[in-house]
């Protein structure tokens, strides 16, 4: 069987995709624009899908690529469209519109 440094190529690709998922999780965490954060998390779901391919779980890939890339993104975009697009991390000032 074909090997690179004593490991199958699947394992190296698994490490690569998990690194990719870690980077995209960090980008999701620091992003203030929520639509961009949702797109980053969809990219992270793509990385997890490819990692599941490398983990020899084709049935999980079929379920997860529909849920993770499709349904989660559509759901979060729907919520972002109905509510607000930007998050404000700095503490809020005095309440302006007090009843």
């Amino acid at each position: 069987m074909y090997e690179i440094l004593g490991l199958s190529p699947c394992t190296w690709l698994l490490a690569l995709f998990m690194t990719y998922a870690l980077i995209l999780t960090y980008k999701t965490l620091v992003e203030r624009d929520l639509v961009k954060a949702i797109i980053y998390s969809a990219g992270q779901a793509v990385a997890y899908t490819l990692a599941l391919v490398m983990l020899a779980a084709p049935d999980l890939v079929l379920a997860y690529v529909a849920v993770g890339v499709g349904m989660y993104t559509a759901l979060f975009l729907f919520v972002a469209a109905r509510t607000e697009r930007y998050e404000h991390v700095e503490p809020p000032g005095e309440e302006v519109n007090k009843p």
Binding site: T25, T28, L29, L34, A37, I38, S41, Q44, A45, Y48, Y64, G68, Y72, F76, V79, A80, T83, E87, H88, V89
Partner: peptide, 16 residues
């Protein structure tokens, strides 16, 4: 993160 939608996104990443 104070935003509820950001919390939901991070929760989805956690469960996955």
């Amino acid at each position: 993160r104070p935003n509820l939608l950001k919390k939901l996104i991070m929760l989805s990443i956690l469960s996955d």
